[in-house]
Design a protein around this nucleic acid. Structure first.
Lengths: 183, 183
DNA sequence: CATAACATGTAATGAGTTACATGATTAA
DNA sequence: TTAATCATGTAACTCATTACATGTTATG
């Protein structure tokens, strides 16, 4: 389970409240590990309980911000977890199942969905490319910057992977490129 | 939620028992949608309840095989679902979080895990390539074969995506390629 | 028959999602 | 000072995982 450690990492970069972290998730690492605000608040409470982090207003405050920051125990836990290792993420994608199902029970109007999804991945790619342009090229010996760049590259290439695949899917699903919508 | 529809698809190809389906999942579509046998039995029971499938020994039989087959209502449901559309799978990968965490709190012995994972993806790639060789090239107008081939391609390229990425990660994590193991 | 392997199933737990509730802050 | 938005939180539910239980078939 990575959510607590993703939160620890974000807090290691700098302290923040639950909504801050939700925002950072939406903008950066969230592309590789999504979380809703409910999950985030629940995990923050657990980790405070465990002594990995602490919040500035100690008690629960409905409506007012609580600034969390990393404690030494949390940093230690994070380092322990990094080296731990784990399984490679089961790769669960509905669209693959849909393509396979379409092969089994005949044409069922999949092209429209594929086109929507293609658009989505193209948007994401543009977003990553904008991030890439903003990021300065890392100095030769800056390990941290090189790793962050690698994570960004993973996102870029992941979107390209899908875009290529979906374009080929369209060729099969919708042989006449200029034709009308979902059959 | 795709599991019931993955099972419907597998039953559309040919009837089978719970353990048959578990085996097929392990060997083919399971690479894109994993399921344990408990999930499979539960879903089969639900779908029989819903009238999408039926089993040959009608009643529950501990220990003895139950052969399930697709009913017209199930085929209809499957076709409905194919065209339905859905979100693009949140992309949750612990390794990305680990790389990002390593960038934040310094070197923590990640290289060993990355090498293990690289091996795993290389094995999977070899497996897909063997499947590709077994598969006859589809006739020009065989839509179903073309789609199945596309799904296989998705697997192949997914593994290549990871292999490339992990090799680059090693270059950053472990600048001296011939050096000893996890720092 | 005794044992191993196979096939189906139950139970407990935990992670993730969705809907909703409530207090604080900001803007009209 | 009302309404909108932000920030935190609770509750219910579903999906998935893990561990275990029980019966059947095949093998010596």
């Amino acid at each position: 389970m990575s959510l607590p450690h993703a939160l620890l990492t974000s807090l290691a970069e700098r302290p923040g409240s639950g909504s801050d972290l939700a925002g950072r998730f939406d903008r950066s690492i969230g592309y590789f590990w999504h979380a809703t605000h409910q999950q985030i608040y629940r995990e923050l409470a657990r980790m405070a309980e465990a002594g990995w982090i602490e919040s500035l207003p100690e008690e629960s405050t409905r409506g007012r911000k609580r600034a969390y920051r990393l404690l030494p125990a949390g940093r230690k836990e994070l380092k322990r977890w990094i080296a731990l290792g784990g399984q490679p993420a089961p790769l669960r994608d509905e669209l693959m199942v849909r393509l396979w199902a379409d092969a089994a029970v005949g044409p069922a109007g999949l092209a429209k969905d594929v086109r929507q999804r293609l658009q989505l991945h193209q948007d994401m790619l543009a977003r990553y490319q904008a991030m890439e342009r903003r990021e300065a090229p890392p100095a030769a010996d800056d390990r941290a910057a090189a790793l962050r760049r690698l994570v960004l590259q993973a996102g870029l290439r992941y979107e390209r992977y899908w875009i290529e695949l979906l374009l080929e899917a369209l060729k099969t699903l919708d042989p006449a490129p200029g034709a009308a919508d979902a059959a």
